[in-house]
Amino acid sequence: MAKKLYKDFLWGGSTASYQCEGAWNEDGKGLGEWDVFSHGNPLNINGCTGDVSCDFYHRYKEDIDMMAEGNQNTFRFSISWARIMPNGRGEVNQGGIDFYTRVIDYCLEKNIEPNVTLFHYDLPETIAKEDGFANRDTIDAFVEYAKVCFKAFGDRVKLWVTINEPKYYAYCSNVVGNYPPNHKQDFQRYFNVVYNEAVASAKAIAAYREMNLDGKIGIVHDSSNVEVAPDCKEPEKVYLRADMFYNGIILNTALKGELPGAFIPFLYEMNVDPSFIKFEDALTFKNGLVDFMGMNVYNRFYVTDYSEGETEVFHNNKGARSKMKEGIRIKNMYETTDDPNTKRNLWGREIYPRCMYNTLMEI
């Protein structure tokens, strides 16, 4: 079966730098926003850190060997921005370049295609202190960092992802508030961050092509599938609102090179000031179309009419210790709802495998 699949598929595993590397302060790496959060923020409810984690930094050969033994032929991993550029811009850390060179070379030695993500939730702390992706200056800092990586690894890496799940990163950081910088229900900042991430991604893609590298480059979006409950009174309006909230910026700019026509009216309806949208970005989006769209599929967004109550976000960080169901209610807009025919996992997230098929067909 594996031999048949490999004719058409890359079949492998995926990690993120902070989640697996450890070595948080070794070989010239700068502080990342998660280093600071995990070491002292009271919202780190379990007191866990990524200081050691899976110790991939020191044991990457063991992990890659296991992938090869399991007949995996690709490895998707992210680069720590602060390991390459400790201050987010300017100085390049040779220790970081050397580490990822070793990882990439060992993947190739084992016939495993490296699939490299530039940003997976882990801003350098210096950039985070400048308001992160809510600050338009971060766009140019990200492109500078991307060019360093393209130059160092582009001869061997043929699959690149600019940003992993820009919407979910912005959502957890600015709506749920469980990711640093822990803003809650800050919809102005949420849309600002997602938009700037989309601009940064498009600019990095254009820079990659300007360097005449021969790989493919895209972005990874998460869980785009919006479905409307059958008893919804205004299904078209509810669908449009939810689709604008979850997908409007990322899918349209990455795949079509433009913002959807309904997007700015939707922002006004959300009481969001759209002044972060700049005229010159229209050309940036046109020049930054993706070669591929990655999808991380966890769940659908099952929505209906807004019923009553203030805006509220439901998010379970405690697993079986909480009865909270994942979802959101946005006053006068829409809310997520329960499907009585599906179950939920221990974190309150719906178990609905068909959303994988529906996601692909919808896109």
Results as ranks from 00 to 15, higher is better:
Tyr6Thr: 11
Val228Cys: 01
Gly12Cys: 05
Asp131Ile: 05
Val116Ile: 11
Ser275Ala: 15
Glu210Ile: 10
Ala68Ile: 00
Trp160Asp: 00
Ser53Lys: 10
Phe266His: 09
Phe77Thr: 02
Leu10Thr: 05
Leu255Phe: 11
Val303Asn: 05
Lys110Asn: 03
Lys237Asp: 09
Cys48Gly: 15
Gly95His: 08
Thr101Glu: 07
Ala282Asp: 09
Asp27Thr: 13
Lys203Thr: 02
Ala141Leu: 05
Pro114His: 05
Ile330Cys: 04
Gly288Leu: 07
Trp347Leu: 03
Lys318Asn: 13
His39Ile: 09
Phe99Glu: 00
Leu123Thr: 03
Glu227His: 00
Ile264Pro: 03
Phe187Asp: 03
Val143Thr: 02
Ala82Glu: 06
Gly70Trp: 13
Ile45Lys: 15
Gly88Asn: 01
Phe245Ser: 03
Pro274Ile: 09
Pro181Leu: 06
His120Leu: 00
Met66Glu: 12
Asn71Trp: 07
Leu360Gln: 12
Asp155Trp: 13
Phe245Pro: 04
Phe245Thr: 07
Phe314Pro: 00
Thr15Tyr: 04
Glu234His: 15
Phe263Ser: 06
Arg102Leu: 07
Leu283Ala: 15
Lys3Leu: 08
Leu255Gln: 15
Lys216Leu: 10
Asn341Arg: 13
Ile163Tyr: 03
Ser275His: 15
Asp27Arg: 13
Asn316Gln: 12
Asn73Ser: 12
Ala202Tyr: 06
Asn247Asp: 00
Asp186Ala: 04
Ile84Asn: 04
Gly12Leu: 07
Asp105Ala: 10
Glu335Lys: 12
Asp281His: 11
Phe75Asn: 00
Tyr18Glu: 00
Val220Lys: 04
Thr138His: 05
Asp186Gly: 05
Arg76Leu: 05
Phe187Arg: 03
Cys355Met: 08
Met270Tyr: 12
Gln185His: 09
Asn212Ser: 13
Thr342Gly: 06
Val193Gly: 02
Gly13Pro: 04
Asp122Val: 02
Lys29Thr: 01
Glu258Ser: 14
Tyr268Arg: 13
Thr342Phe: 12
Phe56Arg: 02
Gly132Arg: 01
Ile97Val: 14
Thr49Gln: 10
Ala320Phe: 12
Asp222Ser: 13
Ile363Cys: 08
Trp24Thr: 01
Thr15Lys: 06
Phe285Asn: 01
Tyr246Leu: 03
Ser275Leu: 14
Cys355Gly: 03
Tyr334Phe: 15
Thr311Tyr: 08
Val297Ser: 10
Val313Cys: 14
Ala204Met: 04
Ala206Ile: 04
Ile249Thr: 06
Ala152Glu: 09
Tyr171Gln: 02
Val297Phe: 13
Gly12Pro: 07
Gly88Ser: 03
Met293Trp: 12
Thr359Asn: 11
Arg300Tyr: 08
Ile330Val: 13
Asp155Leu: 12
Glu310Met: 12
Met293Ser: 14
